[in-house]
Amino acid sequence: MLSPALVSLALFLVAPILFIAVYSFWIRTAEGLDVPAFQFGNWIAVATDYYYWLGLWGSFKLALITTISCAIIGYPAAYFLARIQFSNKVLLLFLLFLPFWISYIIRTMAWISVLGRTGALNTMLISLGIIDEPLKMLYNDFSVIMGLVYFLLPYMIINIYVSLDGIDRNLEASARTLGCSPWQTFREVTLPLSLPGLGAGCMLCFVLAAGSYVTPRLLGGPDTLFFPDLIYEAIISQLDWPTGAVLSVILLLSLGLLVAVYNRFMSLSDIYRSFAR
């Protein structure tokens, strides 16, 4: 019964991903045909081009700022959700996940209407007399990070929440009886026990942010450099598939390495668990 799933995944997922690696060694002839070969020309061309490294750094920088922002905003909210005594907690969690369901492109697009020159924020600030001239908030790294944090925050919160919710409350109570202050209890007991959730959330946010194409494309400015854009340009616009293959392998390997390191210390099953909820 597994075989249809395994065959389709092997054929349309695993084999294609491996095939990218093969393609990255192919040679592009003068007529624009890609012929099978084993040579490092494409790899050397990419590795010696400073621009690609800037692009990789650009994506990683955006992803890092996004991940840290999500952790700082998400942890207190998750803590509150896990600790509050409220009969309709399911409703609160449901509300948190509602935007999560709303079309990704719409949630990204919404920020144009919020941050733009005549957007909601500028209109509000001007009518309140706080500023005279509209602020330039859109089409730069700031708006990209806003968009990324906005779409990734629920992932972060649910991962931390699951982790906090699973902590035996008696441990915190014992720490308090043994003389810990609330802050000490949090620092010495709660925070360490919730690290798997925080770690899972951070990894998920980083990987999804660094791999995102649409958000930086729509909300970024002309000098926003991000790696998936270089891949799209190579494959779709310039039809330079061998270069596109090299770039795809680089993105896959660098993010895969991150996942592998994470998996070495914490289990990936934490992430799947939060998906299954």
């Binding site: 294609p16 393609y23 998936p228």
Partner: peptide
């Protein structure tokens, strides 16, 4: 089975296209 969740979508896109 969970692999499509973790591989960057851009890479999935390129992979199937080439293959």
């Amino acid at each position: 089975i969970s692999l499509p969740l973790l591989v960057p979508e851009v890479v999935l896109g390129v992979a199937l296209l080439m293959f």
